[in-house]
């Protein structure tokens, strides 16, 4: 391999963005759908971990990692529907239930996942998109997992669908004004439950990326708050699926800065470099928010905006 030196840093950021962003992308797209319908699910961290565990376990048991991805989605769907159904009960607070679900999902995944920490499950394949480059580093950075591409496709499709399809309009209406939706004859609770279920499905798939591709094994420290952060990114992305994608890329890339700088010899202050994603996100939020208007694109029924 040729010497890269400082060029290693941008390549690592690119590679990091491609490798690390996918779980953030899936979770935030899932949460985006949920929140568009007027409900918030803070429990996606629990669903992410549950997805990571069940995906790995299924891949190990069936020998097919794609079945693992589906299984992870199904586990997420179940937990998402659970959240949706509980929150349909009158007086129940969706934020609180989400926090409860975070604990429940994580606990269940740790409990059931113990037998799968040791075995090695088949992982997802990578697609080499860097073949045009002679540099092995660039080739490695552009080893892309199909889920990443599916995620991008999903982001594009969702932002189109929210604007241009009947289904998208209904979801947005349910999220902006349940009275209007009800007047039009739509069943608001059912719609929201469905959206929460779909959100859970996507978060579960995001979890399977962690255990089946990158870093690519199941352990209890696997997520360490990525699901919670991804939920927060939705607010940052102003409920726009494409922005969710950019935010996920930004977050993944910024996370790679610390290790990359150290590998070229900048080793002091690594805690501060490692905090880069948070500082950058906060900085952008402060710069782009305004005290005078509420967040553009915010669904009117969302409990955190009232």
């Amino acid at each position: 391999m040729t010497e890269l030196g400082w060029w290693g840093v941008p390549i690592a950021v690119l590679g990091g963005a491609v490798r690390v962003s996918t779980p953030f992308l899936f979770v935030s797209l899932g949460e985006c759908i949920t929140e568009k319908s007027g409900r918030i699910n803070l429990g996606l961290e629990g669903i992410l971990v549950m997805g990571a565990m069940s995906g790995y376990a299924l891949s190990y048991l069936t020998g097919n990692p794609w079945l693992g991805v589906l299984g992870a989605g199904a586990a997420g769907l179940v937990l998402g529907l659970l959240h949706g159904l509980v929150c349909n009960l009158p007086r129940v607070n969706d934020i609180a239930v989400g926090i409860g679900l975070m604990l429940f999902g994580t606990g269940l995944a740790f409990f059931l996942g113990k037998p799968y920490v040791q075995p090695k499950a088949p992982t997802l394949p990578a697609m080499p998109l860097g073949g045009w480059s002679a540099s092995p580093q660039v080739q490695a950075a552009l080893e892309v997992n199909p889920l990443f591409l599916i995620g991008i496709g999903l982001a594009v499709a969702l932002s189109w669908a929210f604007r241009n399809t009947r289904w998208g309009l209904i979801v947005r209406m349910v999220g902006d004004s349940s009275d209007a939706a009800r007047a039009m004859g739509y069943a608001v609770p059912r719609m929201r439950t469905l959206c929460t279920g779909v959100g859970g499905f996507l978060a579960g798939v995001g979890g399977s990326f962690l255990s089946l591709y990158y870093p690519g094994s199941w352990s209890e420290g696997l997520s360490s708050g990525q699901g919670l952060m991804a939920v927060a990114l939705v607010i940052f992305a102003r409920w726009n699926p494409m922005h969710c994608f950019y935010a996920a890329l930004l977050f993944g890339g910024a996370g790679a800065v610390g290790p990359a700088l150290q590998s070229v010899g900048i080793t002091s202050g690594y805690y501060l470099f490692n905090a880069a994603p948070y500082v950058v996100t906060l900085g952008i939020m402060i710069a782009t928010c305004s005290p005078r208007r509420t967040l553009a694109g915010a669904p009117g029924e969302l409990s955190i905006n009232r």
Partner: peptide
């Protein structure tokens, strides 16, 4: 020896990123 310090005892994603960065720098 190129050194990367992750900052904590169990950070799977960061450890993977560190490994990739080091390999990109020619570590074998």
């Amino acid at each position: 020896t190129l050194l990367v310090i992750t900052g904590d005892w169990a950070l799977p994603v960061k450890e993977a990123e560190a490994a990739n960065s080091l390999v990109d720098q020619g570590v074998d």
